[in-house]
């Protein structure tokens, strides 16, 4: 069994009027199938309203499936007795860094999760130190979160999740509210955790550039997985991506246009270096 296994997953948002009668049903997840292996770096792509955030909330048992099954680390998310175990296994980082920091001192915020699960005091301090060091925020442990930049706040939020020692971290558009520098900072921290600590990462985003280094990519649209594969494979299908309202990275776009103009480039060029190499190859 895979670490995360979604089968025929359906989630419907039911809209009710004041008397509680059903006014309408919006299908956010439509028979979704998805598998993630332990230790992978997975990216889930999709434009607004594709159901990617709804899916993320299922992984953390914040939402329950309407139909179908979802197993996280072998645990069924529909089982309410397992809710807290699931939340410990799969931690979640949200979009707005301000709205997920609870305490007014960095280290106390990181300690919030372990406090909730009843970790002994000494171990809390060990975990806080380990997680803050892992995201490079140890020097700021006594600062107020209000004085940090967006990227730093988001790293504190990641440390807060790390302190619960999860096997998997789900990041729901963690960079959407950050400037380019903050974005790089956060992604570097996430990749570091994936490589050195072997934490499974599920990165939910609509920025193509962030997907380039992932192990495997799922593209969602209208609550379904419409494309999947490694980044090179996904980005070689520029036209299909456009159909799903997604842009490709600028370099990939450039390579694609050059190819259409007749240059014999290969598909799925993701970085500037790759493009330079390809052009070099053609010239010789």
């Amino acid at each position: 069994m895979s670490f995360i296994e979604a089968k025929d997953l359906v989630h419907e948002y039911i809209m009710r009027d004041e008397e509680g009668n059903v006014e309408g049903v919006q299908v956010a997840l439509d028979h979704l199938d998805l598998n993630v292996e332990q230790g992978q770096f997975i990216a889930v792509l999709g434009h607004n309203g594709s159901g990617k955030s709804t899916f993320a909330k299922h992984l953390n048992a914040l939402l329950m499936p309407s139909e179908g099954t979802l197993y996280v680390g072998g645990m069924d998310v529909s089982d309410e007795n397992l809710t807290y175990d699931i939340r410990q296994t799969a931690g979640m980082v949200f979009q707005n860094p301000d709205n997920q920091i609870i305490a007014s001192v960095v280290q106390e915020d990181v300690g919030f999760g372990p406090e909730n699960i009843g970790t002994p005091t000494e171990e809390i301090w060990e975990r806080v130190e380990k997680s803050l060091r892992a995201v490079g925020m140890w020097a700021y442990r006594e600062h107020s979160p209000n004085r940090l930049s967006g990227g730093q706040k988001q790293r504190v939020a990641i440390a807060g999740v790390m302190a619960m020692e999860p096997k998997c971290i789900i990041l729901d558009e963690p960079t959407a509210m950050l400037d380019p520098d903050g974005r790089k900072e956060v992604l570097a921290a996430v990749h570091e955790l994936n490589k050195t600590k072997g934490v499974t990462i599920i990165l939910i985003t609509h920025y193509m550039e962030e997907v380039v280094d992932a192990d495997y990519v799922y593209v969602m649209d209208k609550g379904k997985v419409v494309m999947e594969g490694n980044p090179t494979g996904i980005f070689s299908q520029v036209e299909t991506l456009k159909e799903h309202h997604l842009d490709v990275p600028q370099i990939t776009m450039l390579a694609h246009e050059l190819k259409q103009e007749g240059l014999p480039l290969r598909d799925g060029i993701l970085t500037r270096e790759e493009l330079i190499q390809e052009i070099d190859r053609i010239c010789h």
Binding site: N60, L62, Y84, R87, Q88, G91, M92, F94, N96, D98, N99, Q100, I102, Q107, E108, G111, F112, G113, P114, E115, N116, I117, G118, T119, P120, T121, I124, W125, V128, G160, V161, M164
Partner: peptide, 26 residues
Amino acid sequence: RRANDLALAMEARCYSGGEGRTKMLP
């Protein structure tokens, strides 16, 4: 809106009231 986000974030970090909580700074 912020309160809603925060409540979600607290739940995601296993907050379930004062029962069974330990203290970082007892």
